[in-house]
Amino acid sequence: MVEVKICIGTACYVMGGANFLLIKEKLSDKERKKVKLEFVPCLGYCKSGKGKPPFVLINGKIYEKIVDVDALIEIIRENIEK
């Protein structure tokens, strides 16, 4: 199971995170069964200065500056295949 925590805090939301709300609809049924999706009010990474929003935490690893929902799906798929 791939655990995905998507930050929809202010910085992440304005820098493209708003589109991540559509992710569930973009995943196939098969993929959806392998992914545990969670949206969180703020992951807090923007304050640490380590990277740029939007941030997504996948299986405990932080991914930064994810340009769009397709890029996020790509990362999730890579994690499913691992």
Binding site: I8, G9, F39, V40, P41, C42, G44, K47
Partner: peptide
């Protein structure tokens, strides 16, 4: 978000979006 996170953590009340 951060404010909600602080209160949620201290009171052990989960937040659901």
């Amino acid at each position: 978000g951060t404010t909600a996170h602080i209160i949620s953590r201290k009171l052990c009340k989960p937040i659901k979006i």
